[in-house]
Amino acid sequence: MRRLRIEGVTGLLRKLRDRVSGALRGRGSPRARKAGLRIAFFTPALLLIMLFVAYPVLTTIGVSFFDANGRFVGLGNYQQVLGSPDTINLNGFPKPPPYGTLINNAVWIAIHLPLSMFLGLWLALVLREVRGSSWVKTAIFIGMVTPLIIGGIMMLYIYDGSIGVVPRFFDAIGIHSLGVGWLQRPTTLLFGLIFGSVWLWTGFSMIVYSAGLTTIPKEYWEAAKIDGTPTFRTFTQITFPLLKPMTIVVFTMSILYELKIFDLVYGATNPQGGVGGAADVLALQMFREAFVQLPADYGTAAAVATFLSLLTLTATVMTIRYMVKR
């Protein structure tokens, strides 16, 4: 039986080799040559994907069904993660943070996505065809090339109660309740990081939208101007619809960024998400279970990772399908 199976695999491989070599040497029918070439080009990429993407993903999913002692627990790790106050903590709401990692990630999306997207779009529009605007765009884009871990450490100082520029600004204008260390208070910590991240991430949407604006023929706007179309209507009827491909890119990339946010929070706080865990996020929770917990609980970490991947995948697929359909 085993011998038969080996012979079967060997035969298949031989057949594949013959097809590929035949195609490369120009032998065989055109159809066979085409198939052979497809296999020749497709196989290396497939092998790499299997090795570096499929295998780790499947292993992670597999690990998520076992506990820290290697016992099979089915969906136990998922139950544990979703039932943990670290993930969702709304008991007694309304109440001060922490609200849990899942809620915090949702807050990231709710605030960071529209702010960074529309700020980038607005900047791209107002800086279009303005002399010297490339300097402003470059300055704004610097945030994008700054490593996020460095961005997190910068937040430590920007929001520091003693020397931070943000608290000093609010103190100077008389809003003393904000003239304190933002990262030291659970109520301002998460929002401080989100606003700081908007500053770093806006450069991305601005550049993508700026590139998009260059692809729109000027004649459209000129025609609208000649017809006396109001500025806002020009924007809603011409500019924004024509920027749809850019919006898809910015929207999708921003959601991915917000779901997997880790380094900025880690750099600015600690592995627990700062004061009282108020800025804790899913990626940090995963890191903690795998690399802080003693002994490491890879099962729970893998469950968080799988859950995070599912969220990311769902968000991406839904966004793209919705936008492309429309």
């Binding site: 065809e129 000027k218 101007k225 020009t234």
Partner: peptide
């Protein structure tokens, strides 16, 4: 917003004479 940066060209003028505002 977008329209505000469109050139000051009068109706009927050629688009080649369009100059971006600066």
């Amino acid at each position: 917003m977008a329209g505000s940066s469109v050139g000051e060209g009068a109706p009927g003028e050629s688009t080649e004479r369009y100059r971006p505002p600066s």
